[in-house]
Amino acid sequence: MDKNFKIIVFVKQVPDTDDIKWTENNTIQREGLDSVMNPYDLSALQYAVEIKKYRKKNAKIIVATMGPPQAKDVLKEALALGADEAYLLSDKKFSGADTLATAYTLSQFVKTIHPDFDMIVCGQQAVDGDTAQTPSSMAEKLGIAQITSCKSIEELADEYITAIKDTRDFVSTIKAKLPVLITIDAQGTYLQPRINDYIRAQDTEISMLSASEICADTAKTGFSGSPTYVKRAYRAMKERKHTEAGENYIQLIKEEMDRAKSCEGMND
C-alpha cells in the first residue's frame, strides 16, 4: 500500500486578544484570559483538510502544539475539525521559549516522530505575538524549502509542489521540492464540526511528548534556549494634550491644516 501523504499542522493556543484587561501596573492580566486557537492556524488546518479532500485522498493530517497540558483543548478542536492524529509537546523545559527555541522544539518533534513527513502547514503568524518567525525558522532547522503567504497550489506532485505566493509587495510562483513548509494567511474559515466529529475527537488519544521523547537538547529549548528576552513591557501610546473642540471646529480643522502645510511650530 502507498505510504500516506503526511501533512503536519502546527497550532497555537493564544489569549483572546479582543478581551484584554489591564492590571494597575499597565501589564496584561493573564489570569482568567480566554484561550482560543490562533485564527491563522484555523486557516492552516482548513487548508490541510482541503488538500486531503481534493488533492491527496490518502493524506494523514497530524496536528501538534507546544504548550501546557490545557493546550489539549486546541488539539481536541483540531481533531474535531478533521485532523487524524494529535500531539502535545509539553515539558517544563519548553516554557518561556522565544521563536528560535520554539522552532527548534517543533523541528525536533518532526525529526524524531514523523521524519517521513511530506508537508508542514502553518498559520502565517500568531495573533498574540504577530512575529511570523517560527515557521521560516523551523523550515531552516529542517533544511526544507518554504512558501510563506501561500495563496494557492498550482500542482502538488509526489516530489514537488508549485504554488503561488501572494504578499502585500509581490506575487511569485515557486516550485519547491517536497517535503516543504507552507504558511497560510488568515482567510474565511467554514469548518464546522458535527456531533460525530466531536465524538471521534474525544475518542482519539492525544500523545504527550516530553523533551527527552523528541531527543531535544534542553539547552536549546524554553527559556534557556531563547536568546531574546523582554526587558520592559509597557502600555502603548504616548499621552496627547487632548482638547475638545467647540462650536467653531470647522475653522479649527482648517487652521490646523494650514499650519501643517506651512511647517510652522511643528518641529517638536
Binding site: D18, I20, D128, V230, K231, R232, A233, Y234, R235, A236
Partner: peptide
C-alpha cells in the same frame, strides 16, 4: 505585541 495593546522592549 498583543494586537498592539502592549509595547515590549526586547
Amino acid at each position: 505585541t498583543y494586537g498592539g495593546k502592549l509595547m515590549a522592549t526586547i
